[in-house]
Design a protein around this nucleic acid. Structure first.
Lengths: 144, 144
DNA sequence: AATTTAGGTTGTACTATGCAACAAGCAGGA
DNA sequence: TCCTGCTTGTTGCATAGTACAACCTAAATT
């Protein structure tokens, strides 16, 4: 049991350390796209467009927060709004051409940073690490 | 190589997802101690006291940020300052009795949450996951 | 002694965030 | 039809976290 507690303690500590650094690191890498706006824009691309409400629900953010983030992305020309003809309350959000480019570029940078950090890992370890993270996040989502 | 890229992609995605949620989750769990102040206070306890400058260096924060965080913790009665008799510029920071209690309580809560999420993992997987996170963070620190 | 360096604080500005109040559009029932 | 209530989104307000620059004080160096 002591061994097990140690492992849990390390996992807690290291995930926390990572989280603490993540925003600042992301901001340094691509100042034009914060961790949050990057995530939102990526989700729009993934989903081929969605509503602000969907983003808020998915990321547990207040709708006002999403509204302002989207406004900022629109001001930068990274997102466009298309009013749903069937429901005039709804705006379906899409990345613009420019937004998609910026997203791809930031994504490539991020991916390169991860690739560098993981350069000396062998394939089996990478695969197991990825599986563990999936499993962990799945549990976190399940347990709230 | 495709397999390897997939693993890197998943690791990136899942670590990012975790980071996005971390602050809000911490805030919901113990509103009196944010992720940052929790971390700073824990470091003080760990180190049996240290200077504000040390905290700033360790966590890559501006000294003004640390100064204000410490002020807040002091206002709450969680931290006390002891002027170093050998160097009157220096204040060595220590958790107070109350600070230690709050830290222990928040720490227990956090630990419990992690324990719950990891409840159905077997010991070997936990140990490997912990080792992977240590290795990853070590690399991130090394590479900036 | 004069200058430089180190530790901290304070002024200013900006971003992210949530909550509450609001406006506009839709849907269902009296 | 019209009133009520729900959904989508925006805006006003407040707060936290953060950085940068200017500053103060004390120590160290020349």
């Amino acid at each position: 049991m002591a061994q097990r507690d140690d492992s849990v303690g390390i996992i807690q500590q290291e995930l926390t350390a990572f989280a603490r650094r993540a925003r600042a690191t992301a901001a340094r890498m691509h100042p034009e796209l914060s961790l949050v706006s990057y995530t939102l824009l990526a989700h729009l691309e993934d989903q081929k467009g969605c509503r602000a409400t969907d983003l808020a629900a998915h990321y547990l953010l207040d709708k006002s927060t999403v509204s302002r983030q989207i406004s900022a992305l629109e001001r930068l020309g990274f997102v466009e709004r298309r009013v749903d003809p069937d429901d005039h309350r709804v705006q379906v959000l899409h990345p613009t051409e420019l937004g998609a480019q910026v997203l791809a570029s930031a994504g490539a940078q991020r991916r390169q940073a991860f690739t560098d950090r993981l350069a000396d890992w062998d394939d089996a370890d990478l695969e197991r690490f990825a599986a563990y993270l999936l499993r962990y996040n799945e549990a976190q989502q399940r347990l709230g």
